[in-house]
Design a protein around this nucleic acid. Sequence first.
RNA 1: GGUGCUAUCGUCUAGUGGCCUAGGACAACGGCCUCUCACGCCGUAAACCCCGGUUCGAGUCCGGGUAGCACUACCA
Length: 530
Amino acid sequence: MDRRVRVRFAPSPTGALHIGGVRTALYNYLFARQHGGDMLLRIEDTDSTRFVPGAEEYILEALDWLGIGIDEGLRMKKGAKEIEAVGSHGPYRQSERREIYHTYVKQLLDSGHAYIAFDTPEELEAKRTEIPNFQYDARTRMQMRNSLTMPAEEVKRLVDGGEKYVVRFKVEPNEDVHVHDLIRGEVVINSNILDDKVLYKSADDLPTYHLANIVDDHLMEISHVIRGEEWLPSAPLHVLLYRAFGWENTMPQFAHLPLLLKPDGNGKLSKRDGDRLGFPVFPLEFHNEKDGTVSSGYRESGYLPEAVINFLALLGWHGSGDKELYTMDELIQEFSLDRVSKAGAKFDYEKGKWFNHQYLLQKSDEELAELFMPILETKVESRKTIAEVAKVIGLTKDRVNFVNELWEQVNYFFVAPTEYDEKSLAKRWKEDSPRHMQELIAVLENVSEEDWHKNYETTDDKGNAVIRWHLDDVVMPWIAEHEYGVGIVMNAFRICLVGAARGVHIWAITDVLGKEETLARVRAALRALN
RNA sequence: GGUGCUAUCGUCUAGUGGCCUAGGACAACGGCCUCUCACGCCGUAAACCCCGGUUCGAGUCCGGGUAGCACUACCA
């Protein structure tokens, strides 16, 4: 029977959404979209002690920013920073599903697949230090304080009396459990190495991940579980749980994704690596109210969501050809689980920058100007219109990876230099330069306001189409006539206008600056450098 | 320690027994372009973890090592 594809992303609200989690969400989304199925979002907040305020909003906002759409469950309301719940399988927060879990805990207890245990955390800790490799399982459970070893009346008395207890899954020993993984194939684990996992704790009246996960995935009719590789070891337990419930024929298919590894050294990428290595590991900046920390985000670092998506998609997945630039639609079209790699991928921040550069170049100058305006306003009180800013960006955008790097490329268009770069001066400001500049002023003063901005298309000596400026026709003959040397004059001129030997083509600069400002800057430089 | 997963350039990866003299991309390096700095273009260097086996033929299949990682909680 072909089931409707329904996948879920089920994060815990324990802090900012890690970039590895974002990739898991992305792959789920791509898979759902490709199959015309549903992408659900469920919040797994069964650990009340690790709850972090704001984390849920953060997760939803991050997915929204990245364009990872949610069909069912919790999501950000369109155009509003407000959470909405959609769908008929709710509630979608596990903390709101207590009664549901009660039913299923009872079912397992009644069918003998689970039992009640009274051992306290302290007692268990003592056991673990006393016996090396202690595991609560078929070999040891009969020596513990639980409903298997105690008279039923006493168990009832303890429970009724409010004694804290947990419900443990009774794993039958010596059984090979087969897990079919869409990425890794058949994985077999013997049940002897599994322990009697805690499924429910009376202390907070909440199930643990394992129980809640299976119950919810079943009830929400999830067809495919696509999650991180760290879950592979517990997959056999989950299979056993489906079996104990009698749900094996509708059990979802599993796909365990390779981990995202630290760029340096070994081990999986962690939240702390970002600050240590100087790049974000979170989609958005996050202010953790619980511990007071602030984590940097891709959005605030100037990344475009399309770039983050493309970059992440290729960390663990690759199409069949050499193509590396994918739009979300193309990813939906071409993504497939069997092209997901099995080995963990080291996180390469440098490549991420390159992706952003590619997407930045695809934006129009006007779009970039809109994004840059807020940054520009913090730098200078600009009288420039958005069209003028767009023009300047058009000249400089191929030099930057991020919108927030634009300022250092365009600053000289907005403010006249007050200092002149030592190194540029040493190399490009010659003894004759002041005289050259004096003469250049005279030459340029004769150019009309109208001619100043003129340029036309022509061909160079190789026959290539090139843009030639009217000012070329004025200045070049003058340089040639006096045999000053183009490089000598132009570099000195550049220093006057920019303050250093850098920047775009000189006539593009004079065009934006205009005649008056250009000449003013040369005069100012002459005063400063004499 | 136990169990599982994994293994191609520095990094992400292509590769499904002959198309591999191992391809692409990022980064690095060199050159070209040029009034500067960039962009761009061209090029260079750079890898099949080791040992066996199967086969006419192995990066590709099998076995064994080794290494890395994950899991081993009343966390997810």
